[in-house]
Simulated scan of single mutants.
Amino acid sequence: MERSKIQVLYDATHALFSQEGLPTFQQIHNLKKLLDKIEAIDVGIDEWGLCDSPISDASDDSSKELLCGQGFSEITYIHIHECDDFSMGVFCLPAGKVFPLHDHPEMTVLSKLLYGSAYVKAYDWIALDSTGCQTIGLGGKVVDEVMKAPHEPSVLFPRSGGNIHSFTALTPCAILDVLSPPYSEDFGRPSTYYSDIPIPSLNGYAILEEKPMPTDLIVQGAPYLGPSIVTVHDYNNFAQMAFHNYV
């Protein structure tokens, strides 16, 4: 049976981020190419809100309907998978909504704009001071543009590529994220939010200051309706069952 696109992405992501040592740029590039093949329908979303078409390559899930891409009234997160090594999910934003400036501590992040358009602003640290109660420092802007699908996936690293970024939905849009490792309060990888104060005398630079999570930031959850993913855990369980049945 042919694997779905999201299964191929999962398999490659697991192979890359579960290995010993850091991935190479070529390995990241190869994963980026796989991510670029993913479309909204491959993760169970109907961009135009028709909501009456079965998922095209879902095999056993073919009876499921799709989520309406135009129907979200709040920022919505669709959880696809999470393990110790990485997480996969989709943020769906209605027009006008803002996901504020936030960071990805010690993470590699690959993102694909599945549909729509968004204004993206991203910084990397030039200098920072985290010795006090709040982190504050100088950030250099590395992205300041409107992204419109189709757009090649973006890649950010712990200290480059725009690790601190924000999204403003200009139209309804969806962003598929692959994060490695995932956010974790227990392992010192919380999501931190920032305000940015541009420096008039230094074009492209701003003072970034940590702030509490905005009280008006609402992120709802929605079920993942795309093709089922067979995880490594599933493989292991199947092998154990097969072994016990054999003996």
Rank of each mutant, 00 (worst) to 15 (best):
F167N: 04
E145T: 13
T171C: 06
P150I: 03
L176W: 06
M147K: 14
I164K: 11
P182S: 02
T168Y: 08
C133W: 07
V155Q: 07
I175K: 01
K141Q: 15
A149I: 02
P153H: 02
T171V: 02
M147I: 15
R159E: 13
C133H: 12
Y183P: 09
T171S: 15
P153G: 00
G137S: 01
S160K: 12
L138T: 07
I175L: 05
P150C: 00
T135E: 13
D144L: 05
P150K: 00
S184R: 10
M147W: 13
V155I: 09
H165S: 04
L176K: 01
P158I: 00
A174D: 04
A174I: 09
G137C: 07
P181D: 04
S184C: 11
L179G: 04
D177H: 13
L156M: 15
R159W: 10
V155N: 03
F167P: 09
L138P: 10
S160D: 12
P153Y: 01
G137T: 03
T135S: 12
S154P: 01
G137F: 00
C173A: 13
V142Y: 08
C173I: 10
Q134W: 12
P181S: 11
V142P: 05
G137V: 01
I175V: 15
G161N: 12
P158Q: 00
F167C: 04
S160P: 03
A174F: 06
G161P: 10
M147S: 07
C133I: 07
G139F: 03
L176P: 07
I164E: 09
S160E: 13
L179I: 13
H151I: 11
G139T: 08
D186P: 02
G162D: 08
G161A: 03
A174T: 10
